Simulated scan of single mutants.
Amino acid sequence: MTASNLPTIQPDIYRPASDSEKLTVLTRLLATYPCRAPSDFRLVKPAYMQAMEKVSQYALFEAERRINQNALGHGFMPSPSELRGQIDHVMEPFLERERRARAEAKRYAWPREIEGSPRLDEAARARIRELHRQYRAWREVNHPESTRAKAPPKPPRQIPDYSEEQIEITDALRRALKAKEAVTKNLSSASERRRPHEPKP
C-alpha cells in the first residue's frame, strides 16, 4: 500500500486544546511576527490564554496556518481578538452543519421525541375519545348518508353458455346449407375448367 492510497483519518475537530499546545502556538507566532507595541510577554499572556479558552486543537492549528497564509492581511502579531476571530472562523462551517442537523432532526421527529413537547396522559386520551364519540354522534344526525352502510356491489352479469344448447335445424337453415353447397360445387367445377390440360405421358 502506497502513501497515495492510505486511508484518510479525519481529525478530531472537537478535541480541546491543552495549555501546552496553546503556549506552543503563541510562542511560534511571537517568534515569527513583530508586535505592534512591544511589551513583556508575561503581561500579554493572560489575554491570549483568555482568548483561546474552550478552543479545539484542530481550530487552533488551522487558525495558525491561515494566519501564516495572510488571512489577516498584515504582517504583525495578531491581537488576542484577531486570534480568537480566526479560530471562530475555522469552526463556523462545522457549527452550521450541526445546527442544520439539529433542525432537520427536529423537523422529522415524532412529537413525543421533541424535547419539551406535551405528552398525553390517560385523562387527555379520555377527552380525545369523548370528543371523537361526540363528533360521530353529530355526524350521524346531520349527515346520515355518510355513516349509512353501503350496499355491496352487484355481481357482474354472467355471459350465457350456449355450448350445451341444442341447435334446431329449420327448413330455412336447410335451404341455406344446400345453396351454400351448390355454390361451392359450381366454383370448384369452374376452376377445374380454367386449369390447362396437362400433356399426356
Rank of each mutant, 00 (worst) to 15 (best):
M77D: 01
R97F: 04
M52W: 07
Q86K: 10
S56Q: 13
L83S: 02
Q86V: 12
P80T: 07
A59F: 07
R102A: 03
F61P: 09
F76P: 00
S117P: 10
A71V: 04
Y48W: 03
E64N: 11
G116H: 10
R65Y: 06
E82V: 09
I114P: 00
V55H: 00
R84A: 11
I87A: 02
E82N: 08
E98P: 03
V55D: 00
A71G: 06
E113V: 03
M49Q: 03
R112S: 12
R102G: 00
V55Q: 00
R100I: 13
I114G: 00
E115F: 04
K106L: 14
R65F: 05
R99W: 02
E64C: 10
F61A: 08
R100T: 11
A109R: 09
D88K: 02
E82G: 07
A51V: 06
R107V: 15
E113D: 13
A103L: 14
R107T: 15
L60K: 04
H74Y: 13
L60I: 04
H74N: 13
I87E: 01
Y48C: 04
K106V: 09
M91E: 15
E113Q: 11
G116Y: 08
A59S: 14
I67V: 14
V90R: 06
D88S: 06
N68I: 07
L95I: 06
Q86A: 14
P93A: 02
M91I: 15
R66S: 06
A51S: 06
M77C: 08
E98K: 10
R107A: 15
A71R: 08
M49L: 12
F76R: 03
R99F: 01
R84Y: 05
